[in-house]
């Protein structure tokens, strides 16, 4: 099997020599492997990209999809920006909160699910939009929340 280092070299090859363009793909790859961007993950990525861990950290903290704290095995991102908000996104958030017994921004004690409110996901016409493990669920309403949670493998 190819090592992380090799895969990153493969990513670097897609961009001009000496550019740092591979940093986002590489960080995403590291996050897939470690679940989140731990100190080790960032150091590993920095080494493969021949940059400093500080540089990787600086980049990672700029982008919302890169996690600098552990997240659950599943992530549930509820859009609460205007269009969804106008169509009841708050009730959807609260439905997830009560079903999971956590507040938005938290992870269930068993480390299974992380619930977050997020900015516009670009599905405004199909409110409320919820990204379940980065896959969009549209027209989500409080009633559909239990079903969504049920579908999570080994769901809570």
């Amino acid at each position: 099997m190819t090592t992380f280092y090799d895969e990153v070299q493969e990513l670097r090859a897609r961009y001009p020599e000496g550019s740092r363009s591979a940093v986002l793909p590489a960080l995403r790859l590291a996050q897939e492997r470690h679940g989140w961007l731990s100190r080790e993950a960032l150091e590993e990525t920095a080494d493969a990209l021949e940059v400093t861990p500080a540089f990787c950290y600086s980049i990672a903290t700029f982008y919302d999809m890169l996690h600098l704290e552990p997240v659950g095995r599943h992530t549930i991102d509820v859009c609460t920006n205007l269009p969804c908000a106008l169509c009841g996104a708050q009730e959807v958030v609260e439905a997830f909160e009560s079903e999971l017994g956590i507040r938005a921004g938290e992870t269930t004690p068993d480390g299974e699910v992380t619930l977050r409110a997020v900015e516009c996901l670009g599905g405004c016409g199909y409110a409320t939009v919820v990204a379940v493990n980065d896959r969009y669920r549209q027209h989500v309403r409080p009633e559909t929340v239990p079903e969504i949670l049920g579908e999570l493998d080994g769901g809570t």
């Binding site: 897609r14 961009y15 550019s19 740092r20 363009s21 591979a22 940093v23 986002l24 793909p25 960080l27 995403r28 600086s58 980049i59 700029f62 982008y63 919302d64 999809m65 890169l66 900015e119």
Partner: peptide, 27 residues
């Protein structure tokens, strides 16, 4: 043609921020 994924930052829609991000910097 290379399809390059962002990572969650609205500002990267602004053209010069997009270029910075595409170059591997903060957007």
């Amino acid at each position: 043609i290379t399809v390059h994924r962002g990572a969650g930052a609205y500002i990267c829609g602004e053209e010069t921020a997009l270029l910075e991000s595409l170059e591997g910097k903060r957007g």
